[in-house]
Design a protein around this nucleic acid. Structure first.
Length: 103
DNA sequence: GATCTGACCACCG
DNA sequence: CCGGTGGCCAGAT
């Protein structure tokens, strides 16, 4: 995905998420000036290059859970990345949003 | 170019 | 908190 694509707004927002904090898709969409377009964020992240500097792993869904289509292990990978930044998961494999959501 | 699909969300129950 | 519903929109087919 080229840097000059129209997803650039979203990447900019994601890049500004501090370490050890998370944001929801809807939140990113809103901060990017596209309220209600949470789905676009998902598409933006899914087309993101692996070598990108964007901390895509800090974006989770509104229930505090890691979303990913069927494929198994990359979901675990995202969790490991967050845990290495100090984010603690609950028993259900979810993040305590009131505590870790970026404001 | 019509239709389907999806890293979703708000709203309701 | 969980499940279903409707809506939005970019890619893939």
């Amino acid at each position: 995905m080229p840097e000059n694509s129209r997803y650039r707004r979203f990447y900019k927002v994601v890049e500004s998420i501090p370490e050890g904090r998370v944001a929801t898709y809807g939140q990113v969409a809103q901060l990017a000036g596209k309220p209600g377009r949470a789905r676009l964020v998902g598409h933006a992240l899914s087309s993101l290059e692996e070598e990108s500097d964007v901390p895509w792993h800090r974006v989770i869904n509104a229930r505090g859970e890691i979303s990913r289509r069927g494929l198994g292990d990359s979901e675990h990978y995202q969790r490991v990345l967050l845990e290495s930044e100090g984010v603690v998961f609950t028993e259900g494999g979810r993040v305590n949003l009131v505590r870790y959501q970026w404001r």
